[in-house]
Design a protein around this nucleic acid. Structure first.
Lengths: 157, 157
DNA sequence: CCTATAAACTTGACTACTCAAGGAGATGGC
DNA sequence: GCCATCTCCTTGAGTAGTCAAGTTTATAGG
């Protein structure tokens, strides 16, 4: 059925799963990016930054911790936060004890806007995991499998 | 248990799954990139480009089709292929019938190197999905769930 | 044949990261 | 008290993609 020589027509199931994961992620990111940026002017990365801040007590975190929690580098956080500060969703706060640290802190506006973004993001997620194709158990299962896959989740190392 | 007001402490399971997927992918990509670039001097994207070519009859494809198959834009393919041409893994071939199309075609060297890369990638995937934590069924299940998630796989539109 | 539209590809300008280097402040040994 | 070392953060340079615009060639209508 396959004419010509096809190198690597078959590959291991693990590799196949990896490639599918990468592909699925690209599609998801595109979808969320376009929805979030259309309605709120932020990217998915911006949203996860804000969301993580929103989950922290007081709505504020050190930039290093933010980086660790999101799987970005420190410089990625610096660069990602800059526009969010410019548009007033986040402010920079100093630490009284340690002058090196610069907290990122959600502003009241940031909090309010974040709530709206969460709604949008949940709607988008609900479309992606439409009940027609996805049962609650499927989603939980996928989540569980992905958790095993290294994305450290929320805990520190 | 949570002091201070934490916006969006809870979120829908679908959104949670999405965020985990993004996180898992970032970790996977980093791992594959570092292995592949260390041993073969190519990124994961380069590898998927080559792999897809290797699966095509004759080891060649039109650039548009390559883009479609991998979820990239046409310009992404142009840019990704350029270095692979420079290092002699891929060549550009014209179509006798249609002067607009430029096939990307695996060179004999490309074919040989690809086989080695596949080995590396499968080893890496085997480490990630280590038998201690992952059964064959788990992997198949993950693959199946991911396939449902839009990453068009191999078929055209 | 000629013109309009569409397809395949490339290019320029931009965004979002990365890594490596560096500044500024904290900390611990002695 | 001072120096070495470590941590937090920023910055410059580079990479990998995007989108929009432009070129070239094909195709279809009249």
């Amino acid at each position: 059925m396959t004419p010509g020589q096809t190198v690597a027509a078959a590959m291991s199931d693990s590799l196949d799963a990896t490639l599918r994961l990468v592909r699925a992620q690209a599609a998801l990111v595109r979808r969320f990016d376009s929805r979030l940026s259309g309605l709120h002017g932020v990217s998915l990365t911006d949203f996860t930054l804000l969301l993580r801040l929103g989950q922290a007590p007081g709505g504020r975190m050190r930039r290093v911790d933010l980086a660790g929690a999101l799987g970005l580098t420190a410089s990625g956080v610096t660069r990602g936060l800059a526009p969010l500060e410019r548009i007033g969703l986040v402010t920079r706060e100093a630490d009284a004890r340690d002058a090196r640290v610069a907290y990122a802190s959600l502003t009241p506006t940031g909090r309010r806007r974040l709530k709206e973004m969460v709604t949008t993001a949940e709607e988008t997620a609900a479309e992606v995991f439409a009940p027609a194709a996805w049962s609650v158990e499927d989603i939980a299962l996928l989540s569980a499998l992905l958790t095993r896959l290294g994305g450290r989740g929320l805990a520190g190392h």
